[in-house]
Design a protein around this nucleic acid. Structure first.
Length: 593
RNA sequence: GGUUCCGUAGCUCAGUUGGAUAGAGCAACAGCCUUCUAAGCUGUGGGUCGCGCGUUCGAACCGCGCCGGAAUCACCA
């Protein structure tokens, strides 16, 4: 039912009957560029060897043939080696009728494929920052896109709740916290715990400096600093399940989870499964044995287990320490295996920053060598850092952009801007707050999701994120204006539910319909490439198209009743697609703004 | 040094997998609100697609080599 595919078939048959011996791969159909007349374009160059004619003559011949054989095709024109095919407006309005009748337009049929996507995966020693925001938005959006492609999606969060970094916060809290709690301080739990992580670092640095002043080397001082020794001792106690340490660990993690929940909710992301490393970190040891038995891994004199990947252009990689304890890779191998088994997964996607590219390269390779073919269906959705104008975010230098502050800042800016523009007149406080939140978050999410995940992106906190031009609010605004028109139509009692055609139509209208027809293709492409940016760009184009139309032609003041109804239908369908596509980015669209 | 990735307008980014004269937004300038919301619309200026060679009818896109930048190469996670 793909139109481009349909055209390709039509052309294929024409070319085959004219010249014979064609392969489908030689039929190159693309959308006609807007500076030319037509809907789809055939590139004739690949066909010249078969036609044995000039590009122009070939195009002419094929054009004549397809027009003669197909009622859908109204005409054609030839420019250089390009055959521009013109479909009649009747054709497009027929498609429009189909779209309107489809209540779930953009939702693909179920595929039965199970896909797990892991994202967020925070450490529990500090609050979420801008980098996490990019991760969360990407993960959630890709999950939405995969669902729209008909897959069963399991959103997973693997919380890194154990390790030396958590112990650092715990030690500092014991030493300097005076029993402070989120309740006693009025602080969000994750921020409170994060404060003690910073506190630890401060004292650690001071102790190192003192030891160095006493004549110790830097290296030595780092090892001997008392506060670090305490943290390490605490980690040992934790692993021995010391009741006191465990209770403190559970208490402080509990604070953090409460804080994270608030941030997740504000961002509008959620999870189907939450895994905790404290429960999974021992997985994978049996795999190590399996690898040893198969002779894929080897053991060094000290008992540690390794794999040699030098033949694959990588290094030797540690899989198990000499004392038998596991490392990151060990548990990731084990976790992957148990997830594939338990959930009957067809694919597993990890949304993890590009600093772990190497890790995932190794992970896939090791699983492959162990004979797990599903290793190929693991995809590392790698994304670049978010940088500030003066470089990377560094928590120690206090240059991190905190997620909660960022979100509230965006909402406040949206509120101020809305008020300045007088957009909130007549709104209740509740409505005003809801709109500001939608718009502020829409700006933030769109800003992040419209760029290619691979690229490191720049965020300038000084200049707040734009609300004009290629932005989330621009798209939300287009939606709100359409809603406004539809409300007025309803007030006037205009019925247009069954109306999908008119006697006459404008070029702009078929252009909009063409764009609407493209939506499922864009959803499919976004799913194949795990690329929310495709959705963002598509929606922006659709909005620009509609805004131009809206500006030049009135819907409600149109005199011809049939045309008016068709325009209302068209506007409503644009709004539906906007709402649908924005939901794939996790962006809500307001009825007014 | 090895591996992976990035380099497109002053700035932030697109570029539909090799097609036609490389596009948006921001910033600058000039216009458009007694007419469905001006967070909008229209126009002007702005480019050696990092550089070079190659592949072919055709390259921002593919290959090779440079230049510049990022990440990583832990018995951390």
């Amino acid at each position: 039912m793909n139109i481009e595919q349909h055209i390709a078939n039509v052309v294929f048959h024409a070319v085959d009957s004219l010249y014979g011996g064609v392969h489908m791969s030689q039929i190159q159909i693309q959308k006609t560029r807007k500076e030319f007349d037509g809907d789809y374009t055939l590139v004739t160059f690949p066909l010249l060897r078969i036609s044995r004619k000039s590009p122009e003559a070939t195009a002419q011949e094929i054009g004549e043939r397809i027009v003669a054989d197909n009622a859908d095709i109204e005409g054609f024109n030839v420019i250089k080696g390009f055959l521009n095919i013109v479909l009649g407006s009747a054709f497009w309005f027929e498609r429009f009728g189909e779209i309107v009748a489809d209540a779930h337009y953009g939702q693909a049929a179920p595929t039965g494929r199970n896909i797990m996507i892991e994202y967020s995966s925070p450490n529990t020693n500090k609050p979420l920052h801008l980098g996490h925001v990019r991760n969360n938005l990407l993960g959630y959006s890709v999950a939405q896109i995969l669902k729209a492609n008909g897959h069963n999606v399991i959103k997973a969060n693997l919380v890194n709740d154990r390790g030396i970094h958590i112990c650092k916060s715990m030690v500092a809290w014991l030493l300097y916290g005076n029993g402070a709690t989120p309740e006693s301080t009025g602080k969000k739990g994750d921020h409170l715990v994060g404060d003690y992580y910073v506190e630890f670092d401060k004292h650690y640095k001071a102790e190192i400096a003192a030891l160095v002043a006493d004549g110790a080397s830097e290296e030595e001082a780092k090892k001997r600093a008392p506060i670090m020794l305490r943290a390490q001792e605490m980690l040992r106690k934790w692993e021995a399940k010391d009741p006191e340490v465990y209770a403190l660990w559970e208490k402080m993690n509990g604070w953090v989870y409460k804080g994270f929940d608030v941030t997740y909710k504000a961002l509008g992301v959620d999870f189907d499964k939450v895994y905790y490393e404290s429960q999974t970190y021992l997985l994978g040891k049996s795999l190590v044995q399996e690898g040893l038995d198969k002779g894929i891994f080897f053991r060094k004199e000290d008992g540690s287990v390794w794999i040699d990947l030098t033949a694959d252009g990588l290094d030797q990689k540690l899989l198990l320490r000499g004392d038998g304890t596991s490392v990151y890779m060990t548990q990731d191998l084990g976790t992957a295996l148990s997830r594939f088994d338990e959930n009957k997964l067809d694919s597993m996607i990890y949304v993890v920053g590009n600093e772990q590219n190497y890790h995932f390269q190794v992970l896939k390779l090791v699983l492959k060598k162990l004979g797990y073919e599903w290793s190929d269906s693991i995809y590392h959705l790698s994304y670049g850092m978010v940088e500030l104008p003066n470089g990377k975010m560094k928590s120690r230098e206090g240059t991190v952009v905190d997620a909660d502050e960022l979100i509230e800042g965006m909402v406040d800016t949206a509120r101020a801007m809305s008020e300045e523009l007088g957009k909130l007149e007549g709104c209740t406080e509740q409505e005003a707050a809801a709109i500001s939140r939608m718009v502020g978050l829409g700006a933030l999410k769109y800003f992040i999701l419209k760029v290619d995940p691979k690229k490191t992106m720049l965020f300038n906190p000084e200049e707040s994120i734009d609300f004009n031009g290629n932005t989330g609010p621009f798209i939300q605004y287009t939606h709100a204006r359409i809603c406004s028109v539809l409300r007025k139509a309803e007030e006037q009692g205009i019925e247009f539910a069954d109306c999908t055609s008119a006697d006459e139509c404008l070029r702009e209208e078929t252009e909009i319909i063409k764009s609407l027809c493209d939506y499922p293709n864009v959803v499919a492409a976004a799913g194949e490439n795990f690329a929310p940016s495709l959705i963002a760009n598509y929606t922006y184009e659709l909005c620009k198209l509609f805004n131009g139309y809206y500006h030049d032609y009135s819907i409600l003041r149109e005199e011809c009743c049939a045309t008016k109804r068709m325009r209302l239908q068209l506007a409503r369908q644009v709004a539906r697609v906007i709402a649908s596509s924005m939901s794939l980015l996790g962006i809500e669209v307001p009825q007014r703004m």
